[in-house]
Design a binder for these strands. Structure first.
Lengths: 205, 205
DNA sequence: CGTGAGTTTGACCAGTTGGTCAAATCAAAG
DNA sequence: CTTTGATTTGACCAACTGGTCAAACTCACG
């Protein structure tokens, strides 16, 4: 009943394909990427690639699915038992670290959303909404207790997503403005975001 | 020596094409958009469309160029003679208003940047950088005078771009999380952003 | 070895796409 | 009404793209 155990070659090639596809999809978008490009980047011929995945669509779906979970982990980790300000700042830090370490994943996701999220709209309005609502309630609770300054919790979460992912999705612009590809914006960005959310959420006692 | 004055029909059709192209490009991206789609949306046949613009590329270039100026106007309007906090908050408000009124333009731009800005990289690292550096210096001056709380001015500008454009570029996600396409996030977003930048930049006296 | 499953590929195909072109149609000035 | 330039289009093309397939090759295992 189970799928047969993947051979050594299958493991290697599937991994190579997904890695190559992430590269190509994240820089050219789904429509802009060609199967030939992905195959070449993975070191395979096109028919060979299609021996491992049934279609271009399937590769994209696999990448997206695999990513969504990882992407939401930092928010899941927001701990009700923790110190509110520490929790939020840690969430921001984790999210920024993800932008730094996985910019291609971030762009893949951004691309999908900008184009109307045709493949993940369902997940967004169910799983994601549920998770966000839960965490927004948690944040609101903290605010009601006076442990965080009051702001709209949903928009607070949006602001964290937007500010952190900006450095991955718009990195070309960031580097163009800061003056060259050698500059590492992340240290300054981290400091700026800590300041921003500290001042925003510090309750005045 | 001059180009001949455009006829009435030329004016009308060029405008219709650009309007249609903005729609199609902003939802499907450059590669994902087809000339047939644009022609249909503009109410023209494909050859007829190509009678007014020499290529798909040319339409896209025209849109992008036309937009860049408009896009930077709010930043240009940051006035050295104004009251610092008012100026920044007014800039944020203008930028958010642009996201609301011109989401297609915002997505067109976002798409271009995410894919590495192949057609506007030059402008970003010259004109845009110059403008941003100038305004960053102005902000820094205000901070040095104690009229704004000190933060990195470049990242402050990034944060304004990111937070405001988020509501246009990721509007599908925003609506999915907030629960439906009927919700208007902009009033709350405006209030949230005013609070955010007030608390971030209010100098403690 | 030999053998059968697993892997790879050259050749090919049908659909799509950006773009061309000659011929047809239209509009406005005389 | 006629003429002339502007506008419109059906038919077409070459390049590209996602995907197929039968044949060839490779590899692990008995």
């Amino acid at each position: 009943m189970n799928a047969p155990a993947p051979t050594r070659i299958q493991k290697k090639n599937r991994a190579a394909i997904l890695e190559a596809a992430l590269d190509v999809f994240s820089t050219h978008g789904f429509r802009g990427a060609t199967v030939d490009q992905i195959a070449a980047a993975a070191g395979l011929s096109k028919p060979n690639l299609l021996y491992y995945f049934p279609s271009k669509e399937a590769i994209h779906a696999t990448l997206l699915e695999r990513m969504l979970d990882t992407w939401l982990d930092p928010l899941r980790a927001l701990d009700p038992r923790g110190e509110p300000m520490d929790e939020v700042l840690a969430y921001v830090a984790r999210k920024l670290e993800m932008s730094r370490s996985y910019p291609r994943e971030s762009r893949l996701f951004a691309n999908e959303i900008i184009h109307g999220a045709p493949r993940i709209h369902q997940v967004l309005s169910t799983d994601l909404k549920e998770l966000v609502d839960k965490k927004a309630a948690l944040l609101l609770g903290w605010m009601d207790q006076g442990r965080l300054a009051p702001v709209d919790p949903h928009h607070l979460i949006f602001s964290i997503w937007s500010l952190t992912q900006h450095y991955a999705d718009f990195n070309v612009q960031v580097h163009a403005v800061l003056g060259g590809p050698d500059i590492d914006p992340y240290p300054e960005a981290g400091a700026f975001l800590r300041t921003l959310f500290s001042r925003l959420l510090q309750p005045d006692d």
